[in-house]
Structure formats: structure tokens, C-alpha cells
Design a protein around this nucleic acid. Sequence first.
DNA 1: ATCAAATTTATGATGCATCATATTTGTTGC
DNA 2: GCAACAAATATGATGCATCATAAATTTGAT
Lengths: 224, 224
Amino acid sequence: MTDALDTLEHDNLGSTVYHLLCNALIQGKLKPGERLKIRELAARLGTSVTPVRDAILRLVQEQALAMKSARDIRVPHMTVERYLEIRAIRIKLEGLAAEMAAQNASAEQIAQLEDLVRQNEQAIADGDTARGCDLNQRFHFALVDIAGMPFLQGILYRIWLQMGPLIADVYSAGGDDMLDFHYPVLAAIRVHDGPAAARAISDDILCGGQVILQHLQAATAPDA
Amino acid sequence: MTDALDTLEHDNLGSTVYHLLCNALIQGKLKPGERLKIRELAARLGTSVTPVRDAILRLVQEQALAMKSARDIRVPHMTVERYLEIRAIRIKLEGLAAEMAAQNASAEQIAQLEDLVRQNEQAIADGDTARGCDLNQRFHFALVDIAGMPFLQGILYRIWLQMGPLIADVYSAGGDDMLDFHYPVLAAIRVHDGPAAARAISDDILCGGQVILQHLQAATAPDA
DNA sequence: ATCAAATTTATGATGCATCATATTTGTTGC
DNA sequence: GCAACAAATATGATGCATCATAAATTTGAT
């Protein structure tokens, strides 16, 4: 998943740090509001500030980090408006990915998707929420991968970068029902029904994200 | 248009150089295949290499520039596959933007769109292809702006960054009929018909881009 | 004259020193 | 004790020196 963006990208230290921070964000290891300091990170990683600065500036550019003032770099808080906008974009783009995936999927690729769902069932049975979250995300990325749209993959990767801290925040307490909506997606792909796959992904994003939206609204309203 | 990305972005020299290069790309001042050198640019702009490096690395990340090898930074060539993928994405995203724009547009905003179209007519009458290209692009961005989706705006800006060098290349010789498809868009927005606006934008992207696709296929096939 | 090895040059990567400034802390006068 | 000013500190921005290496050029042997 990490190599979604650097398919042909020259690998320098800055890129390494960038992907490190990406993973940290996606896996929710960085909490919303948390502050990052270039020198501190550089010391922690054993590099100079230059590569860390490279990485952080990149993340700021794609709004995965926010630079409130010149010295204040933080993991941004998600707002309801922003979430709704991202949701609308995801429905369009992941719908496109699902549609193309349904058209293209080989038997082997379908088997891989089934395997992801099976592992996810196991994770839920084990009560391993973190693993469930990770597998949920992997399912979504597997679709783009099967769709064979590398540019789209990059866009979606950056979008998920925004949602990482939020999702980890929300699903740390319950929310194991997000797997349910993957079954219709899988069914549509098995019969190569593109439009049905797109509709199913849309349902997944809308219904599965309901918990997140409620959490956001709850956190926003009684604030202050 | 330049501020599409830096709404809340801290402005440092690197960002300035970045936007400079963005404009150069979008306006087709950098040709596909052209090589960029950090030191040379730094000298030309009168800065040190650091901000230029910042800017170039950002552009490489979003694939607006390509780093073939460690010292070989170039404006990438568009391929047919890539163009088709981007076209599919644009139809979804600009369709969404047009739909929301149709819902939201105030009378004043509609007047602004009409003004853009009028200026475009004038540019065509004057035979000013460059200005026509610019106004075409501004129309598309005005839609996203009216839609009120800042995140989407960023994504689309980066997509247009990819198309800049190509479009300038193609439209330097003819191709003035791209305005025709803006009238149905405008008509749909006037009556706040979202789905019709989305369909009209889809037509615009498909038909208006036909010339580009032909140019690409012609350039690819008898290559070698 | 040709080709290969060696040397030079070009260029991005990295580290780091310095600067400017925002933030914090401490001091002093009321 | 509190407030306002001042010193100290923290931190990102910028410039630049140096390194590693790929590309280009020269040189010399055959």
C-alpha cells in the first residue's frame, strides 16, 4: 500500500521519512491536534532536518498535516463539512474504481478479495479492531489496484491519508460492522457487474461512515 | 487560480517557486520532455537551491514532473492510457463539481460564468488561441469554485497540472471549438439542474478532448 | 582511427550553520 | 500581586558547503 505513490519515484531519504509519516497517519499513530517538530523527528530518526523538512512540507501541501502558523505543524482535526466533501469525492472515485475492477477482475484477483474478507471476519471474531480497520482499508485499495488505475490510486491514497487519524480515533471504541457492506461489492465483482459494484461501494461509504459522521457531529456540537 | 492549493498554506519561498512552476506548467511554458535543473532555476530566480528543491520535489511527488533517474528531472510525456484514466476521473469529479455548482450558484456567480464565456467568444473572434485556452480552463475552475469544495479544487488543480503541457502543445495549432460545449453547461446551471450540468460537463470533456486524444494517438503510433 | 580507461564535470542528496521570529520565561516597577 | 517589558529559548526558513555518483570528456594504447 505504501508504494501506491512512489511507483516510479526516485527514493531519497525524504521519501522514506514521508512514507514513514504516511503510515503513522493512516494507522492512526498520530492523533488529531498532535504537534510535530522537525528537529525532534530528525533526532528520533537519526537524520538531519533536511529530509524531515522535505517530508513534512509534502504532507502539508496535501493537507495531511496543517501548518497553523510558521512554527506550528499539527495533525489537523476533521470537520463535518470536510468529511462530507471527502465522502462525496470518495463515492465518485471509489465507485469508478469498483466499476473498473468489476470489469477487469481475474479469477485470481477475486480470490484475493475473498481472502481479505475472510481475514477480516477472523479479525472481528478475534475482537481485533485495529486489524479489522487495516483490512477494511486494504479491501478498498485492492479494488483500485484491480481497476488498474495508478493515478487514481495516488489520489485515493492521499484521501485516505486525511481519514487515517479520524478513523483510528473513532474505531478504537467499537464499530465492527463495517465489513457487512463488502459482501455486496464482492458479489457484484464476481459477476462482473460494474454499476452494481459502484452502487455497493457507495452504500459501504455512506453506511459504514455513518458512525464516523455521528462521532464528528457529537464532537463538534458540544465543543467549547 | 494559483491560490487553489494554498488557502491556508504558510507561504515560504518554496511555495512561491512551486506556484511559479505550476503556472509555467499550466500555461504550457514548459514543454513535455524538457529538463529542469535545480541550480539553474535557483540562479535564474535569484534564490538558493533549497526553495527550488522544495518546489521540484513537490511537483515530482504529484507527478507533474518526473524524475527518470536521480539527476534527470523532466516534464513528463502524456500517454494514451494515462490520458484515458485522467479523463475518466475528470468526468466523475468535474461532474460532481458541476452538479454542486448548479445547486449552489447565485445569480452573481452565474453572471460571472456568462462573462467568462463571453470573453472566450471574443478571444476566438480575435484568433487568440492562448487566451481561449486560458479562459476554457478558468471556466472549469469557476465551477469547482462555485461548488464550494476546496478539497476537490486541490485535486482538480493537480490534475490540470498534468494536462497543461499537453494542451498547450495541441492547441498551438487550431482547436477553437472547445467553447461550444460550455453553453449546455451554462444552460443547466441557470436552471439549477445538477444532473444535466454533470452530463454537459461530461460531454465537454469527452468531445472537447477528442482532438487531444487524436493528437496523442497520432504521436504515439508512428513514433520510433 | 577506434575504443576503453581515466579524469573531469555536472547535479541531486544531505547535513548543518545561521537567521528571523514567535513563544515562553523571568524581571522589574507599580 | 499584577502587568508590562525584556531576555532567553524554540523552531521553521534559507543558504550553502560537501558528498556521491552519473554523464561527459579527454587521453592513450593498439
